[in-house]
Design a protein around this nucleic acid. Structure first.
Length: 260
DNA sequence: ATGCCGGGTCCTACCCGA
């Protein structure tokens, strides 16, 4: 089973990139973040012609997540469980597919909106931890992929790419990411590649790509049983070097078939 | 310390991202 996640920074701008990439990589499921449109404007047809059906949690202008799948999926959540109803930002979608749950998430950045904005990011991480704990309690196998907007350690960003006060590296953000690991989840990329940076994002500004001033903020976390099936996990760096790229690249995770 | 670039929208000046 091949799972992938990609913050595309507008699906309407990145439609040709995504279509070409699907043809080449052929994931079973691709989770998209920052589609930046309502469902009615999502270019479903160009992906349908490649054999992918779309499930969309859209929002005008900002945020927005979606699932493209070439295997049957059933949507289990269109928002992160536990968040107040007043939070209408489109940042979470979850599907059941091939006997597992696959969540696609776009965490708040936490640098805008002052103290309230940062607190909202931490609350989102708290609810994600609660949801992961509930799925573990239910003995459900699951994967949580997406743009976490957290650099878990100092090895996860290029020197000088972020200030120590940045919401992506603040201790409160990292503590909540560690809680996910301490619950028993596996960071798929780090499990297979303990040392290489494996950046997934390079800012459009300051020639960040040319200087390889990147961040590792897109992650794939696996429940214990799925971690046993992990065979490969890596960002697709080459996508950042193409014309009119997203500032994020896809992250691809391969899982072996479950034991018979 | 700020802008850089590149999306978006109440359409063109400003908000937001990370």
């Amino acid at each position: 089973m091949r799972l992938a996640t990609w913050n595309v920074n507008s699906i309407r701008q990145r439609e040709p990139h995504v279509a070409r990439w699907l043809e080449r990589v052929r994931p079973d499921i691709l989770l998209l973040q920052e589609i930046k449109c309502e469902a009615a404007h999502f270019p479903e047809l160009s992906f349908a012609s490649l054999g992918y059906r779309a499930e969309i949690v859209g929002q005008k202008a900002y945020n927005g997540v979606a699932v493209l799948a070439r295997i049957p999926v059933e949507v289990t959540h269109r928002a992160l469980p536990g968040l107040p109803d007043t939070d209408t930002q489109a940042r979470y979608i979850e599907v059941r597919a091939a006997g597992i749950l696959v969540g696609g998430l776009y965490l708040p950045n936490g640098n805008s909106g002052g103290a309230d904005g940062f607190a909202a990011k931490l609350r989102w991480l708290d609810r994600l931890g609660d949801h992961a704990a509930a799925m573990l309690d239910a003995q459900t196998d699951f994967a949580l992929l997406g743009d976490y907007n957290v650099c878990p350690t100092d090895a996860d960003f290029a020197p000088g790419a972020l200030a120590p006060t940045d919401a992506l590296v603040r201790p409160e953000s990292r503590a909540r990411f560690r809680r996910l690991l301490w619950l028993g989840l596996t960071d798929a990329v780090r499990a297979l590649h303990p040392a290489a940076p494996n950046y997934t994002f390079w800012d459009y500004q300051s020639a960040a790509w040319e200087r390889d001033s990147g961040l590792r903020i897109d992650h794939a976390l696996l429940s214990p049983v799925l971690a046993e099936r992990l065979t490969a996990a890596a960002p697709d760096r080459a996508e950042r070097g193409r014309a009119q790229p997203s500032d994020h690249v896809p992250l691809v995770v391969d899982l072996a078939d479950p034991p018979a």
